[in-house]
């Protein structure tokens, strides 16, 4: 086989540094989105102070992780749990941290998007699932700046302690009970 004989097919779309929002079609499954259609949208403003506390706590406990982000610490990531009614915008800049919830119709400019089911994303962040395996099985989708995503993945994967437990501990006994329930749900899912 000579490479010169292989006619590679080129896409016409140009690569752009930052992506504009495109409407996604989240899968509707599981208890997490059992909200009836007639119900009002989730009140995201209640989530914002909680998310701010979470990202600040993780940054405080794991200051070494930022070194692995290289030049991408100012990148904006859309974390898209496809079975939840909202996404999260993350900017892992230690001097200007951001983790906020947004409706899918309100996503602003961003550098990369990471989409998957909520439990998969949780287990991934917690070092319990392999991101490449999730990608191979098509349960994880990456779009936008791939290098930024790889850096974020490696930064999170180098954290020894459980991020999920750090977050759960912030909310005391109810937080730990919620995490236990989520982990049981994941184990049940894996054995099915």
């Amino acid at each position: 086989m000579h490479l010169i004989n292989i006619k590679v097919h080129m896409l016409q779309q140009p690569t752009v540094a930052r992506m504009q929002h495109t409407e996604s079609k989240p899968a509707i499954a599981g208890f997490l989105q059992r909200r009836p259609r007639w119900a009002p949208p989730a009140p995201l403003f209640l989530l914002q102070p909680v998310l701010r506390r979470i990202v600040q706590k993780i940054a405080e406990n794991n200051p070494d992780m930022f070194g692995r982000l290289g030049p991408h610490y100012r990148a904006v990531f859309v974390i898209d749990p496809v079975n939840l009614p909202f996404v999260m915008l993350l900017r892992p800049d230690p001097d200007d941290l951001m983790l906020v919830a947004r409706r899918r119709s309100e996503i602003s400019e961003h550098d990369a998007r990471i989409s998957g089911k909520f439990l998969d994303l949780l287990m991934l962040v917690d070092g319990d699932l392999d991101g490449d395996a999730l990608f191979f099985s098509r349960n994880l989708t990456i779009t936008g700046n791939t290098e930024a995503v790889v850096c974020l993945r490696n930064a999170l994967d180098d954290i020894d302690d459980s991020i999920a437990e750090e977050v759960a501990d912030m909310f005391g006994r109810p937080g730990r009970a919620a995490l236990m329930a989520l982990r049981r749900m994941n184990e049940k899912r894996e054995t099915q």
Binding site: V8, H9, Q13, T15, K25, T141, T146, E147, V149, V150
Partner: peptide, 25 residues
Amino acid sequence: SPAAQVEYIKDDEGNLSTRLGEYTI
């Protein structure tokens, strides 16, 4: 395959194209 030159494009039907540099691989 340097990550800086890798791009994934998902279309509305769920098909996923992988590009390296200017080429779809």
